[in-house]
């Protein structure tokens, strides 16, 4: 099992739009909620009301501040398993509990055979595996395998819990092996990219980059304050087409009268 399928029939995965994600954590808690009662049940929590609460989560959202010359923003960054094409988390697994499904490429852990050696979590470059101390096994994003094929759910609900919940629509689910799928097309149009592509593990999940529009976000300028933003306040100039000549009160009144008596 640990051996990888030569190729998978489908490449199911998520597309995550970093331009839209507002960091609301809906995907995080809806994932926890579905999965703590689903395939991965339970996702345990330790010290839940104490000094050091922590638990098993299959999806997390980071926030960064990023800036490139002339462009800066706060980036909310959801991250779960990317269902890689050549997942080393699978090949290192000594028991075969980790496997990549031939039919759709989903990478799963069999909780009944995992010995909890954690080696797979060391092999994953994205920190996408989660050890459940209480259960003694490794857990990870299942791509909600128990939803997407589940015909006890209405058809429209056969999508991952995080996609179902995401209020902004920043998350989408689909088959990246199908060039015509919505996720493939979005990746194509928006310049979807692989996280840490250089690592070469072939993540299937694809991220859509934040847009860098012409009126890039300006950093605040606050006169009288020692702060001058390191990457400089950049305010796009007024496009000539929008510029209008200035007026005086008299001119304005004349215009108002003219305009109304047209």
């Amino acid at each position: 099992m640990t051996s990888l399928p030569a190729c998978t029939d489908k490449k199911l995965g998520l597309s995550i739009d970093l331009d839209i994600c507002v960091g609301c954590q809906a995907c995080v808690t809806s994932c926890k909620e579905w999965n703590t009662g689903g395939y991965s049940a339970p996702l345990s929590d330790h010290d839940p009301y104490g000094a050091d609460p922590s638990g098993a989560w299959l999806n997390r959202v980071h926030s960064f501040e990023v800036s490139e010359p002339g462009w800066a923003r706060t980036l909310h960054f959801p991250r779960s398993c990317l269902h890689c094409e050549s997942p080393e988390c699978v090949t290192v697994c000594p028991t075969g509990a980790s496997y990549k499904r031939t039919e759709d490429g989903i990478v799963l852990v069999n909780p009944d055979t995992c010995i909890g050696c954690k080696l797979c979590s060391w092999a994953c470059p994205y920190g996408a595996r989660e050890y459940d101390h209480d259960d003694g096994v490794m857990k990870k994003c299942t791509l909600c395998v128990d939803r997407i094929y589940n015909d006890t759910l209405p058809e429209e609900d056969r999508v991952p819990a995080c996609v179902r919940a995401c209020p902004t629509g920043a998350r989408a689910f689909g088959d990246f092996a199908d060039p015509d799928s919505a996720v493939s097309r979005a990746a194509e149009e928006r310049g979807g990219f692989d996280l840490l592509k250089e690592f070469g593990i072939g993540p299937v999940n694809t991220y859509l980059p934040p847009r860098r529009g012409p009126a890039a976000q300006a950093n605040p300028h606050q006169p009288g304050h020692p702060a001058t933003s390191p990457n400089g306040a950049r305010v796009a100039p007024l496009p000539a087409s929008l510029a209008k000549p200035g007026g005086t009160l008299e001119k304005l009144f004349a215009w108002a009268d003219r305009a109304l008596t047209r």
Partner: peptide
């Protein structure tokens, strides 16, 4: 007193495989 740990959903666990 509040519990020291939670394993919500354990009771929902069914044979998964």
């Amino acid at each position: 007193p509040s519990p020291r740990k939670l394993a919500f959903g354990r009771s929902f666990r069914k044979a998964r495989t």
